[in-house]
Amino acid sequence: MSRIRTLIVDDEPLARRGLQLHLQRHADIEVVGEAGSGGQATQAIAALRPQLMFLDVQMPGMDGFGVLRALPATQIPLTVFVTAFDQYAIAAFAASALDYLLKPVDDRRLDEAVERARTRLAARKAEDHYERLLRLMATMPAADRPQLDALMLDEASRTGGTLNLRDGQRLVRVALNAIRWVDAAGDYICIHTHDQTHVLRGTMQELEGRLDPRRFARVHRSSIVNLERVTQLRPHPNGEYFLVLDSGHELKLSRSYRDKVRVVDGRLLAAV
């Protein structure tokens, strides 16, 4: 029987313990770790690489959405939200076709969530899951998240020092050298900078065509990286590479995008 590596994230120790006890009824669920805060969760995900995560939405400091925004797409596990949110949030989860559990957790609903996770993992629908996560994060209200409408791309974005984003009638300028990497799924993009993640509408193709290809490279179907941020390359036996960024995050360099970059004296450079 294949085991599903599972992480539990909740700031309440009793809630974590209770969920772990509930999950013991499922022989294929292997709880590989717990986290009591958003910061601990991002570290645990990077270290343990869980396939499935039960994520508390409401936590002090970095909340559940903050955890998801802080991670590269390829590191985000299949996520089941655990929440005491109001009906507005529940409707948003349902509209995005993402699973959630209401506190206190009911065994029947937990069994349904585990069965859906098994099905999705067997079908390898991780990218579809991430697209739904992005859609949810772009619509959920959050005081600490920039509510951006769309990319405003002009020729200056390609050679200049800023990327222009539209927020209603306001123009938001993001310094290009502050961008670490970009994730995308469907019509949504996450632009990760030093201290923020901008979630907005747009496509990877639009953004890639406007960024300077000498500085930014497409390394995966859903990822663009700032080459200056790559500090290490780790080869994988299957022919892919993992790119380690100066923030400690890792991105996957897939084989189909290997010709976009070249390695010179241990540094990753654009192939152009």
Rank of each mutant, 00 (worst) to 15 (best):
Y188T: 04
T162R: 07
V114E: 03
E131P: 01
V219K: 07
E206R: 00
R214V: 01
A175D: 12
D128Y: 08
A117D: 02
E228K: 11
D107W: 12
E112A: 15
K103W: 08
N177E: 05
R170T: 12
V172N: 02
G209A: 13
D167S: 11
A217C: 06
R166I: 02
V172R: 03
R218L: 03
R135P: 02
L101Q: 12
L148C: 11
L200R: 00
A184F: 01
L163D: 04
M137A: 10
R158Q: 02
R166W: 10
A175F: 03
L151M: 03
R120D: 14
D106F: 09
D144Q: 10
R201N: 13
L98V: 11
Y130W: 15
A138L: 09
L101Y: 14
Q147C: 11
N177H: 14
R201T: 13
R166H: 09
R118W: 15
E115Y: 15
D187E: 15
L171V: 04
D144N: 14
Q205C: 08
S157H: 00
R221G: 00
R173N: 08
D128E: 14
L153V: 05
L136N: 05
A138C: 09
A156E: 10
R173I: 03
R124A: 14
N177I: 02
Q169P: 08
D195C: 04
A143N: 03
G209R: 01
V172I: 13
T162G: 05
L153C: 09
Q169K: 11
P213I: 03
A123I: 14
D154T: 02
L134G: 00
R116P: 10
T119C: 15
L148Q: 08
M152V: 02
R158Y: 02
G202K: 01
A217W: 07
L134Y: 08
A95C: 08
Y188V: 00
K103A: 07
L227Y: 10
M140I: 15
L98F: 09
V182I: 09
H194C: 14
L151W: 00
R210E: 00
L153R: 08
A113E: 11
D183W: 04
M140P: 13
L133Y: 11
P213M: 04
V172S: 06
A95F: 11
E127F: 05
D154V: 02
E115H: 13
L207S: 02
T197I: 13
G202P: 06
A113K: 03
D106E: 15
Q169T: 08
H192V: 14
A126D: 15
P104C: 09
R218Y: 02
E127L: 04
L102H: 12
T162I: 11
L148S: 10
R173Q: 12
V199H: 01
Q196F: 14
D106Q: 13
S223N: 14
R170W: 11
L207P: 01
I224H: 05
F93Y: 12
V219Y: 08
R201K: 15
V225M: 06
R210L: 04
A122C: 03
A185Q: 00
L176N: 11
Y130C: 00
D154G: 10
R135A: 12
Y100C: 04
L163R: 07
T119M: 15
